[in-house]
């Protein structure tokens, strides 16, 4: 399951100044896969992937440390009324989220998505959007 973590780095005691990911791994023993991290001087956003069975535990520990945790159910949403099954999204995606089935219908494997946003811009039919 993917969790999107957001935290402040403004104050000296904000979670963004602490090794929160390392700590959560150490305390819970859950192996966390960091898929994307954008961290600047005032705030950070990190996308992690954890086993479904451990997601609640990881979430609880992170929240105790002051990190906002958002569960990404469907990272990317396909509007089937707009999609024409062209496939322009397929090769711009670094994660191979998109593919065709036998009938050349577009398949979306949202679990692989790391929210880079390339497909959203590349879609000629505005059929893709990011789910908050």
């Amino acid at each position: 399951m993917k969790l999107l973590l957001t935290f402040s780095r403004r104050g000296p005691h904000d979670p963004g100044r602490e090794p929160v990911i390392a700590r959560v791994v150490k305390e819970t023993g859950v192996l966390v896969n960091v898929e994307k991290a954008n961290i600047d001087s005032v705030a950070g956003e990190v996308l992690i992937d954890v086993p479904d069975s451990d997601a609640d535990l990881v979430r609880q520990h992170l929240e105790e440390m002051g990190v906002d945790v958002h569960v990404m159910e469907n990272a990317i949403a396909l509007d089937e009324t707009e999609c024409v099954d062209c496939g322009a999204c397929i090769s711009v995606c670094p994660q191979e989220v998109f593919s065709f089935d036998e009938e050349w219908r577009l398949l979306v494997n949202g679990e692989r998505c790391v929210l880079c946003g390339k497909c959203i811009q590349a879609c000629p039919h505005s059929a893709l959007s990011q789910q908050g």
Binding site: V84, D85, C86, G87, A88, C89, I90, S91, V92, S99, E103, W104, R105, P124
Partner: peptide, 23 residues
């Protein structure tokens, strides 16, 4: 086929036109 070898590497292909709708 979805990928082509170009300069020794496999490069992914994708279409702008829709084969499904062409059909």
């Amino acid at each position: 086929s979805g990928a082509i070898e170009l300069g020794g590497e496999m490069v992914r292909t994708s279409s702008l036109s829709s084969y499904r709708r062409a059909r």
